[in-house]
Design a protein around this nucleic acid. Sequence first.
DNA 1: CGTAAACTTGAAAGCAATCAACTCTTGTGG
DNA 2: CCACAAGAGTTGATTGCTTTCAAGTTTACG
Lengths: 254, 254
Amino acid sequence: MSIQAQSHNPSFEDIGVVRSYARKSEIVSEGDPASRVYEVVSGTVCTSRMLNKGCRQIAGFYLSGELVGLESTSKHAVGAQAITDAKVRIIEKRALNALASSDKKVADRLLSLTTRDLGRKEELLLLLSRRAQDRLIGFIIDMARRVAQKNDQIALPMFRQDIADYLGLTIETVSRTLTELERCGAIKITRGRSIVLRSQPVNGTAQTHRLLRAFEGIKGRLPRTEQEFEARFTRGQSHMTLGRNSAREPRQDI
Amino acid sequence: MSIQAQSHNPSFEDIGVVRSYARKSEIVSEGDPASRVYEVVSGTVCTSRMLNKGCRQIAGFYLSGELVGLESTSKHAVGAQAITDAKVRIIEKRALNALASSDKKVADRLLSLTTRDLGRKEELLLLLSRRAQDRLIGFIIDMARRVAQKNDQIALPMFRQDIADYLGLTIETVSRTLTELERCGAIKITRGRSIVLRSQPVNGTAQTHRLLRAFEGIKGRLPRTEQEFEARFTRGQSHMTLGRNSAREPRQDI
DNA sequence: CGTAAACTTGAAAGCAATCAACTCTTGTGG
DNA sequence: CCACAAGAGTTGATTGCTTTCAAGTTTACG
């Protein structure tokens, strides 16, 4: 069934050419005619739009195997850039449609990828209306699912500025909030420079449980029964009270 | 429905049953198995998720002819409610896929609707990282395109609270901001209760030009050449300076 | 008419943006 | 090999937009 996720990936290899892009280089510009879609073969790509004031808003990150440019019909409403060095397969929509017409599997995969992108954007959308810490947590969860590694270690392919542009925050707020999360024991930031985060939702410590609940809470699934938890975790850790939090209110295990 | 039928859209009429929902009633619940999609036949439907603190985030509004539930694969990540009294065609995905397999037009329309939804969500997503006034302007623009009427008059089918939940704002901020926009001459709010807005981007006054540019500016397309415009329109109209503005500048007709 | 729901408005508080240093990392060249 | 510069990240103080809390006002409808 075409709406469901497809386990076997019929590839788009037969059509389109693969091209390499250096980090930070432009793959599509805003306003370009939307006659092609782009399959990420390796590396990471993002779509973004420059806003008036010169700041950019990233609309999505695309890892290898994902398709960029599905949402546009006539002109690309967002541009696409390589976040890391990347290889991208450039596919003419006409060719893709032709292939989809003759090959049911391709049609299925096309709809499936579109649907998945839709779900991801919806998820991001639900995230963006919340406060900074929630956005970061949601972002980390999403990335954890996508670039899963052993040890719950996730190597983020993007820089702070990219994260900020994605979450609609400033780079300072991203930095501050990540530091807060680390101080809570929610994550561990290894190697300041290379942006490797590490969530540790497996060990059974008190801290971990708080994190777990925060992580699940952010998804909107867990009705937060314990009021105090929210008061302390979500608000008490704000940058204004960070230093004094533990002094005034000794932390209790949960 | 006859209006619907006479359009050239290959319809989903043949499959699925139409059911009526009273305003505020639940069509799909969060977590329900995503085995169906829902075509809005009349009225307005929204998808939303309840967040921890009891506030809800609306992920999308769906008008007649649009399809709800495309983004979910296994379980519905968001619920769906009727915002107004509505008629909805309930379609089994299996049936839809079967139909899409045999009828290329249906397959095309399915992908097209998904793609359009994707574009809309991306648009909203780009909006959510911006300030309140921009969000409202973006929202109004979108609604203007979707529920176009003569006279640039748009009858919004949803209430302030719905708009707030959609834009990630509070109802107070929505109210305040709409009032500001009206004071700028950007819109006219007719009938406080029934929520009818009216944008008037056709006449050629100075006010109108400012609005027009704001409206285009929000789309991120127009590099804002005039610095002063931004200073006055985007910032100067904030509620802090509102009094000064309206007191000193008698309203000009548009 | 009167009540409840929807909407508006005001004042104070909170959180993220902004402005401004400062630190750490990485890569390059003397 | 060390010095230095540029890029990336962190931290602090202040400002300002949005939320929150708390009335009011208007509209719909029995």
